Amino acid sequence: MRKLPYILPMLLLVLLAGCDKPESDLPVNTRLGGEFTLTDQDGQPYTHADLKGQVSVLFFGYTHCPDICPAVLARVAQVYRQLDEAGEAEGFQPVFITFDPERDTAEHLKQYLPWFKADMIGLTGSLEQIRQVAEQYGVVFIKGQEEQDYLFTHSDYIYLLDDQARVRKLYPADFKIDEVINDAKSLL
């Protein structure tokens, strides 16, 4: 009968171990991502480590884009707002990385991104830094030949990152908002 008090704490530990949040079914993409340092819209350094501890939706583009980029940013903002309205946006962070540092300075990103009402982080840096990060995520961008009002040809995938900053899923530019919300919830 004396062994019973020792068994109860052990039983409680076994039961509590089963209460952890279940792991998401989304696979970890080990080919994309990696260490980087860029500058956020407040002019502060922002690194790969800053992505950790939250689920992120990461998108590469540029603010002077006439079509795809603002449409994608609006869709990403919808994901954020719907999570926010459901009380589930804590721990979720939209992140926009420009590949046009000439025009998309930290100051410009700070003025531009609030229009989307999504608590979005904007990142810029030197062209070399941006190329490195783009390469790590498999992003392709080619600057047009015009001197002014130039455009870019670019890939337009959206990346869902888990709280360890690992890529868990890629979406096309016309992603389904509900799909991204459900996938993000599985990681939150």
Rank of each mutant, 00 (worst) to 15 (best):
R2Q: 08
L4W: 04
L4V: 11
Y6T: 10
Y6H: 14
Y6G: 13
L8A: 14
M10T: 15
L11Q: 05
L11S: 13
L13K: 05
V14N: 04
A17C: 09
A17S: 15
D20A: 13
D20G: 13
D20K: 11
D20F: 10
E23C: 05
D25W: 03
V28Y: 12
T30N: 14
R31P: 01
E35F: 06
F36H: 01
L38C: 13
T39V: 15
D40S: 10
G43H: 13
G43W: 09
P45V: 15
T47P: 11
H48M: 10
H48L: 09
A49M: 09
G53K: 06
F59M: 02
F59W: 02
Y62W: 03
Y62V: 12
T63M: 06
H64S: 11
H64V: 02
C65W: 03
P66L: 08
P66M: 11
P66R: 05
I68K: 01
C69E: 04
L73K: 00
A74F: 09
R75P: 07
V76D: 05
A77W: 03
Q78M: 13
Q82T: 01
Q82A: 02
L83D: 00
D84V: 00
A86L: 01
G87R: 00
E88A: 11
E88F: 05
A89D: 05
A89R: 03
G91P: 10
F92V: 05
V95I: 11
F96K: 08
I97M: 12
T98S: 15
T98C: 01
D100N: 15
P101Q: 10
R103Q: 09
R103L: 08
T105H: 02
T105M: 02
T105D: 01
A106D: 08
H108K: 11
L109V: 03
K110N: 14
P114N: 05
W115P: 01
A118G: 05
M120D: 10
L123C: 01
L123I: 01
S126D: 09
E128P: 02
E128N: 03
Q129S: 13
Q136G: 01
Y137L: 05
G138Y: 06
V139H: 07
V140S: 11
F141S: 11
I142Y: 03
G144E: 07
G144I: 09
E146L: 06
Y150Q: 08
Y150M: 07
L151H: 08
F152Y: 15
H154L: 03
Y157T: 04
Y159C: 08
L161Y: 07
Q164G: 11
Q164Y: 05
R166W: 04
V167W: 00
R168E: 10
K169H: 14
K169E: 12
Y171P: 12
Y171S: 13
A173C: 11
D174G: 15
I177F: 11
D178N: 15
V180A: 10
D183G: 13
A184F: 02
K185Y: 08
L187A: 02
L187E: 00
L188G: 00
